Every structure is written in structure tokens, then in C-alpha cells.
Simulated scan of single mutants.
Amino acid sequence: MNFTKAVLAAMTAKGLKKSELARATGYTYQHIYDLLSGERRWNEDSINKVCEALGIKIEITHGGGAANE
């Protein structure tokens, strides 16, 4: 799952609107809309603010397997 899809799923699960996410992160509605629609790229700051606002975290794991040996 890509980050935008994960954010949208978390927003749906919490019943959070884009405008509420914008308020919680300090970004404008347009900035959040652009991030979620793919018109703007996520950066470290926006990822961190959105994760904090939604109470989610990013976890990177090593999948193993022949391609990773």
C-alpha cells in the first residue's frame, strides 16, 4: 500500500475530513488536497505531520527472499 492510500484509509477509519486534517497539520486545505490527489509530492515534513495527526507510523521491514540476499 502506498502512503497516500494508507492516509486515506486512516482518515476514513477515523471519520476525518481533509479540512480537519489540514487544521491538525497546520497546512492549508489546498495543500492537503494536492498531496492526496498526487498533485504535490510528499516530503519528510508533510509525512511526519500527517502521521502525527492521524496517530499512524511508518514501518520499514526487510522482506527477505532470494531477491534481497
Rank of each mutant, 00 (worst) to 15 (best):
K18D: 07
T61V: 15
Y27K: 12
K17R: 13
I32T: 04
T4W: 02
L16C: 04
K17P: 01
A6I: 09
E44W: 02
Y29T: 08
T4Y: 06
A9H: 13
V50P: 01
I60L: 13
N68K: 07
L21F: 03
M11Q: 07
I47Y: 03
G15S: 03
Q30W: 02
L54R: 07
N68A: 11
N68S: 07
K49W: 00
L21N: 07
K5L: 14
L36R: 06
K5V: 10
V50L: 00
G38Y: 11
I32L: 10
G63F: 00
G64E: 00
S37G: 04
E52R: 11
K18C: 04
R40S: 14
A6Q: 15
A53F: 07
W42D: 04
C51N: 15
M1N: 13
I58G: 07
R40E: 06
Y27H: 10
N48T: 13
Q30D: 14
L21G: 04
E59C: 08
E39M: 09
F3W: 06
M11P: 01
G64R: 00
S37P: 02
N48K: 11
V50N: 00
S46Y: 03
A67P: 00
A53N: 06
A9R: 15
Y33F: 07
A6M: 13
I47F: 07
E44C: 11
Y33D: 15
L36F: 01
Y29E: 11
T25C: 14
L35W: 09
T28D: 12
R40T: 08
Y27L: 15
L21M: 10
R23G: 10
I60N: 01
D45P: 01
K49S: 08
T61W: 00
G15V: 04
A22P: 09
K57E: 15
K18Y: 07
E44K: 10
